[in-house]
């Protein structure tokens, strides 16, 4: 959610149970402006919070010209001092998937270890993989962005130069549109779009429909769409990443998402529907 409308936006997603207290809100308002200035961002978003056992990671996202690719993430414990989260590589993702288990500790230098004996080849000795919690944090944030960041259709434009920018003339979805999952898109590099047939592509507007819609996610029903706050706000919750809440006030350009959760994927989803 945009740092400029933080307080209002937080009220809209409060239905999920997590709110920030006044001290944290005030601190964020101050520190995010400084963050924006220091890193020369176009805008700064409050991304969310990952709850650790000892401390909680507050996470902010900075965006430059390209809203989709040109982003950086930061974490903080006190909402004032922000530390850069490293960019993820495929190696990091692999290592983290092998080692990291359970809850976040709340200490970025905490080391996860895993020993893996090669079953097929007994001559190879046990290999140990070590991963710090900072790496895990980076990978988790990356996964959540890939799987669960949501924007309403039309809020962003893919310009002719291939740069993704805010659509200034986006006036919000209508009430009927907001009730349908097709009108919400994954804000990440599309995966299924190129596989579509020409017939399906015919109706799409290349400037607006450059992302995958939520309705095509597998398994079906991995999103929960509701109207909250006296039926005025459209709220979408991810059931795959419990804690991710997206909000959009129909007929206004106001939208955004926040993640407040444990940073673990809900792998039991198929059993739970």
């Amino acid at each position: 959610m945009d740092a400029n409308s933080l307080s209002y936006s937080l009220e809209l997603v409060a239905g999920s149970g997590c709110i920030l207290n006044t001290e944290q809100r005030a601190a964020l308002q101050t520190s995010l402006i400084i963050l924006k200035k220091n890193y020369k961002f176009n805008r700064v978003l409050f991304w969310g919070k990952i709850l650790g056992l000892k401390e909680h990671y507050f996470i902010a996202q900075g965006r430059r010209d390209d809203e989709l690719k040109d982003t950086q993430h930061f974490y903080s414990f006190n909402c004032i001092d922000w530390f850069l989260i490293p960019t993820t590589t495929t190696e990091m993702i692999e290592d983290v998937s092998k080692t990291a288990k359970g809850r976040f500790e709340g200490d970025p230098s905490f080391v996860y270890e895993s020993r893996q004996a090669e079953r097929l080849d007994p001559s190879v000795e046990e290999s140990t993989t070590k991963v710090t919690e900072e790496t895990r944090l980076a990978v988790t944030v990356h996964h959540i962005n890939e799987d669960a960041s949501v924007v309403p259709r039309g809020a962003f434009i893919n310009s002719t130069h291939g740069v993704v920018q805010i659509n200034r003339s986006f006036g919000g979805l209508s009430n009927t549109q907001a009730g349908k999952l097709e009108n919400f898109l994954h804000f990440a590099q599309p995966k299924n779009l190129k596989k579509k047939s020409l017939l399906e592509m015919a109706d799409l507007n290349p400037a607006l429909d450059f992302l995958d819609p939520l309705s095509e996610d597998i398994p079906k029903g991995s999103w929960s769409l509701q109207f909250e706050s006296a039926n005025k706000v459209c709220v979408i919750r991810s059931l795959l990443w419990l804690g991710l809440t997206f909000y959009h006030v129909p007929m206004t350009p106001l939208h955004g998402f926040i993640y407040i959760g444990y940073g673990t994927k809900n792998l039991d989803l198929p059993f739970m529907l």
């Binding site: 809209l12 409060a14 709110i19 944290q24």
Partner: peptide
């Protein structure tokens, strides 16, 4: 509860 960082939002809580 707001101090504790849980709740449903002020207006909703009132309702």
């Amino acid at each position: 509860l707001e101090q504790a960082g849980v709740g449903l939002g002020r207006e909703e809580m009132q309702r």
